[in-house]
Nucleic acid binder design. Sequence first.
DNA 1: CGGCATCCGTGACGATACTG
DNA 2: CAGTATCGTCACGGATGCCG
Lengths: 208, 208
Amino acid sequence: MSPRRSYDQYCSAARALDLVGDRWTLLIVRELFAGPRRYTDLHADLPGVSTDVLASRLKDMERDGLTSRRRLPPPGPAYVYELTPRGRELLPVIQALGEWGQADLGERRPTDAVRAHWFALPLLRALEGEGLVEVRLEEGDFHLRVGAEEGPVYGDGPAPREADARLQLDAETCAAVAGGELRLLEAVRAGRVTVTGEGTLAKALREA
Amino acid sequence: MSPRRSYDQYCSAARALDLVGDRWTLLIVRELFAGPRRYTDLHADLPGVSTDVLASRLKDMERDGLTSRRRLPPPGPAYVYELTPRGRELLPVIQALGEWGQADLGERRPTDAVRAHWFALPLLRALEGEGLVEVRLEEGDFHLRVGAEEGPVYGDGPAPREADARLQLDAETCAAVAGGELRLLEAVRAGRVTVTGEGTLAKALREA
DNA sequence: CGGCATCCGTGACGATACTG
DNA sequence: CAGTATCGTCACGGATGCCG
């Protein structure tokens, strides 16, 4: 656990960096926007983080009120980590970083890891309205809770219930939509996104 | 200079953190939003940063296209560092961090350093319209270019020309306005802010 | 097997001193 | 003024081990 290395500046941005400026912290937050996750899941989706650093960050974040640790009910009792409301307020920070970093994303490098749900937040920016959206990529599936006010913003795997809309697309299209080079409606019109489902969101995308 | 330690993730937020996630980098960006600054000025307004780290970050940032180094014309020839357009696009990131960190700012701790222009960005969020605003705090003066599309967003010291509006207030009021606990218009109405000047911005604040 | 704790080599960081 | 040089310390990343 870090002995609280602070910038010691009376500045709100510096204070924020005192809490989330350490290496890996904001990426752990990004992972937890997918909902409660176990230690091992986090370690698997954050290639390169060492076990002790991950454990240390999770303790720091809990102490600082960003996350909470909860015991899952049996069977399979395990601890899961999840964002507190305060932690979820970091969404604009991650969104702003993602929007800025989009310009440097470019092609995937051979050394780059990929997880399907890393496209969730960029895609979320491109969606209006409200509802449960399931997204299918070759790399895997995830679901978005568009317009959700509380709880997880997105999740790994298929939607837990019948989705209001289902999108099928490839990573390239996903990146283009996320980067603002292609609007989702235009991607649908160009046949690069297949939309199914009966929710208002699905209908709005199809009829445009 | 860092040998480019990367998260190696095909994710726009992770890419952003590859570039600005190192310690001190975003705070250097915050300083440079005040306009071109010399090495010594940066070192003076970033208490705690060591000279070699500051030099290293400035090199990294120039290599990554965030800043540029320019020689000032004589008399007093010196190098200044300034943000590139790409660097200035980090404004939403710093704003989001500042907005989030405002909740943890609280009272000033004895160990906290303070600079007047650290209030500039929070205050900028509270201002609508367009114009040059001069702000006078006990801790010092700075000026804001509200609605500026290019160039520095704020600057240290009094405004370089006659300001469209001048605000005089104390740090406590400033923090309250920045934190959203108090709206600027209400602060003016409560007499906690003195507004002078003949610009539209000044008139709008006074007549409300 | 999931959830860490420990150990160790390397590199980043912070303070000070020094130089063009 | 604007850094570079040096050095001690600490944080990080990787591997391994322990314990429920």
